[in-house]
Amino acid sequence: MNKESFIECERKRFVKLIKFRLPNRFLKIGIAIVGLSLIGMVVRGFFHVSDTEWLKLLFQKTLLVGMLIMSISKDKIEDEMTIQLRAQSYMYAFVLGVVYALVMPYVEFGVSNVVNNGGEAYKDLGDFQVLLFMLMIQLMFYHNLKRYR
């Protein structure tokens, strides 16, 4: 294999990778996983059973997986405009996610100290909070961009 064909092969593989989307039927599977995770979280919250911290973490993970599946599932009719709107929604999610991760700890710290004298100590956001926010922003922006296109 010469250098040009090797580069071409690599390029094709890379393009195939970045164009990867799950089929449309996965959207419903994602919604179902998100729904079940939310129900699980609510049920766990109502029935305060001891030693269920692992369950909370599990539901958090399944919620993120469900939202990720929703995020990378194709539309019924996937065309160049929906691809562009999806790319825009990822950009907004990324930018707002970074801003959120930078600003939110200070907001939480400030509010906590204003409401309670000598409130919580400063702490960074967890990965779940940031990822959930980014996925929510992506799905919301994509939905709205499609709605107002």
């Binding site: 539309d75 009719i77 065309d79 160049e80 405009m81 929906t82 499609k146 296109r149």
Partner: peptide, 15 residues
Amino acid sequence: GVSRQTINSIEANRY
């Protein structure tokens, strides 16, 4: 091979 909404957006000069 596109969606109706895409045609609508093109006709309205939004896309």
